[in-house]
């Protein structure tokens, strides 16, 4: 179990508990968190679950694949240092307390 906080572009926070093994995209959709669309269903194929992961959490959230980087580079508000696709991050005890930001729009 991990408590994840999703921060909307405007600053509104949503803290939810995710079961181990669930992706952060799935966690957002199943909890009705606005700002994360997840159009492709978790294939790193659309960049509509774009989030920002603070540097201190990146060891725990893992490396980006080449495919994920390609999709992120075409996304609005891409930040080379912190951008991730939430569908490529899996919840687990190591992520308990993680806070992720969101861009203004996803498409």
């Amino acid at each position: 179990m991990a408590r994840i906080t999703y921060v909307e572009f405007g600053g509104t926070e949503h803290a939810v508990d995710l079961e181990d093994g669930m992706s952060l995209m799935e966690g957002a959709l199943s909890n009705g968190i606005p700002g994360i669309d997840g159009d492709c269903g978790g294939n790193a194929a659309c960049a509509t679950c774009h989030v920002f992961v603070p540097p201190e959490w990146q060891a725990a959230t893992g490396e980006r694949s080449a495919t994920e980087i390609e999709m992120l580079e075409l996304a609005d508000s891409f930040d080379p240092a912190t951008s991730r696709l939430a569908c490529q991050i899996t919840a687990g005890p190591a992520l308990d307390g993680l806070k992720v930001g969101m861009p203004e729009t996803q498409h």
């Binding site: 669309d37 997840g38 159009d39 492709c40 269903g41 294939n43 194929a45 659309c46 509509t48 390609e70 999709m71 075409l74």
Partner: peptide
Amino acid sequence: RQHMSFGFGI
């Protein structure tokens, strides 16, 4: 939202 009409990938 999970449909293919907009295509996927780059």
